[in-house]
Amino acid sequence: MNIFRLAGDLFHLISIFILIHKMTTSKSCSGISFKSQALYLLVYVTRYLDLFWTFALYNSTMKIIFIGSSAYVLHLMTGPFKPTHDPNIDTFKVRYLIGGAAILALLFPYKWTPAEVLWTFSIWLESVAILPQLFMVQRTGAAETITTHYIFALGAYRALYIPNWIYRYLTSTFWDPLSIIAGVIQTVLYSDFFYIYYTKVLQGRKFELP
């Protein structure tokens, strides 16, 4: 563990908290992409299969929180707040994301075992899982401030993993090329969003695309 990874994980927790807080206080999931949320649940379920055979207090607790909160968000979106979700603006074709991640996972896993292939699938899928959400924001041309805070916190999580990987490489010469490539792609996808977030939202203006 190092400070970058801890900070990244905390941002991840904060993002989940912001999302659930937004939905429960406004009793609405407007502006949130159901498709992105469903992809995240798929990411966590396929990556954290090792919950069944390894235990580490910090990691296992976080994994359970991520799976549980993700399932809870989907429950809110399909149950109580379903009327506030507009599928007509959530139209990103996720089959290409799932298909692409599946192909990469089958071609280049570290080992050809079900758990390792699914782990690799989850890494690639996570790197692009935000796209339906960003696409939705782009389509509507604006987003509620709370939604932008959510997307920012989620992006900051993977961005902070980059210094974590540099630190791990320097201190224990450990590196995992797959995670790093996918993590950098993921961060790059957020970069436009980060830029607009910094220049608009943090200066107290509404998030609107130029």
Binding site: M1, R5, A56, N59, K63, S172, D176, L178, S179
Partner: peptide, 10 residues
């Protein structure tokens, strides 16, 4: 911390 592994990250 045990042997570094990619599975020790979230």
């Amino acid at each position: 911390e045990a042997k570094p592994s990619r599975h020790d990250e979230l």
